[in-house]
Design a protein around this nucleic acid. Structure first.
Lengths: 249, 249
DNA sequence: CAAACCCCGTACGTTTCCGTACGGAAATAA
DNA sequence: TTATTTCCGTACGGAAACGTACGGGGTTTG
């Protein structure tokens, strides 16, 4: 199926489908891809690069291929916390899918990578033309919403170590390597806790043989063990994503 | 406009628009209302009545008119926390709007009331027929999503008193009275904290003249004061709801 | 009208995490 | 190489909320 679709898109002038690593672009029908392809632009997504600013119009949607986007809710009092992450399974600009043109949250590359982007207007136009594309994008939005709900659950009920484990697993799912290139400081911002709290927790993980650490980087070496730490705070949104995407044919 | 639309729908056999108190049903076009009306059924929404069960197909959508629905995320380990509330501004069954037929979360009447409900299948069919209805429902879904994101923020960063104040304000927005008929126990479940913690916090509110309390009920008597306690954890989702609904014409 | 139940007030020791802060080691810039 | 910056390890007192529990006063039920 993938091969067939890939070959089909080869006949188009636009980016060949075979080298696209975003899962949504991969799985959508050839005709939906053809609708988007003329507007897709390959782009580097550098660490800390901002893709959405709260209260501002969304200019582009980004189909992430490698790297991880953090979506961070911000208060007027500068309280902030991550409400979701986006990687190769998704795209930024979820509000556009629901007919809103503005970002409520801050979104930026937490871990650098690459992706394809297209202007918001072109994306909206394509959505208007294709019910099947719309359906797929809405399932993606739904998956993101489930993730956010579980972030709320974890924030309210889980301990620091459980939340940290959950975050590492979500990042790992979206990376091609076991290395997570992040400082304690940034992990702390995402989870809304002290930097020192992260340091201590990671130490504990390391002592238990779950990860190794270096300055500005940590590496998962026992994923199953980390899953055990996260317990039931990890997994449900991931299973739902799988379900939604398989339903989407 | 409302009058005109109201008169128009009077010509139909189905529920007259004038006595409908759900804001979405109020504001949608006469033709969209006509699309739904034949399937709408007036229904009592009793305290603790379950409207959605996790992992089960959604049978009906409920347009709430009075009362408050709690949407509660549940873990396999029975950790639970409220991720959103729905009142007269919205409807239950948000996943249906996004093309999913299942509920991820538990949803039940936290405060009893009345509403109109319709079978999921009929709702989906109506969505398929009317782009404008779809647009309105998606804006509603978007508003709910924003609320959930801010619940995640509050759960992660706010103190118990701030979160409790936020919850009381959100409930108050959806009630016609200043009385909130709830036990400490249920407030505790929603916020994911100890019952005793709620008791102490409410006491503090009462001492400060913000509320009065009775067994199984509390009454807001100084809303501005409660807003001050909630600080910036309250308000943003409410403002966004307003914006989204006014944009929706 | 008594028994049972539910709800609230209160208490105490404990856990978790915070705020803050300081110094040293590693990386980067000059 | 040296200076500067960034990042990490560690520490300490304190705040917030937890788990648990007990009793008493309302409210419902038999």
């Amino acid at each position: 199926m993938t091969i067939e679709a890939g070959l089909k898109s080869m006949t188009d002038a636009m980016p060949s489908r075979t080298d696209v690593r975003n899962r949504l672009l991969n799985m959508m029908s050839g005709s939906d891809f053809a609708l988007l392809a003329p507007h897709l632009e390959m782009t580097a997504l550098k660490e800390r690069q901002v893709v959405e600013v709260p209260n501002r119009t969304i200019t582009h949607v980004y189909f992430v291929e490698t790297g991880v986007v953090s979506v961070v809710a911000v208060n007027v009092d500068d309280h902030r916390i991550e409400v979701g992450v986006i990687g190769k399974e998704g795209l930024t600009g979820v509000p556009l899918i629901l007919g809103d043109d503005r970002a409520q949250h801050s979104a930026y590359m937490q871990i650098g990578g690459i992706g394809r982007r297209m202007p918001a207007a072109a994306f909206i136009e394509a959505l208007g033309k294709s019910p099947s594309l719309r359906a797929l994008m809405m399932k993606s939005a739904q998956a993101f919403m489930i993730q956010t709900a579980h972030t709320a659950l974890a924030n309210g009920r889980a301990k620091l170590e459980e939340r940290l484990a959950r975050w590492l697993l979500m990042a790992h799912d979206r990376l091609d390597s076991d290395a997570v290139p992040l400082t304690h400081e940034f992990l702390a911002v995402m989870l809304g806790v002290r930097r020192a709290g992260i340091t201590v927790a990671l130490h504990s993980f390391e002592r238990r043989g779950l990860i190794t650490t270096r300055r500005g980087q940590l590496t998962l070496i026992n994923r199953a063990g980390i899953e055990q730490v996260a317990g039931s705070f990890y997994g449900m949104p991931e299973a739902e994503l799988k379900r939604l995407m398989s339903e989407a044919v």
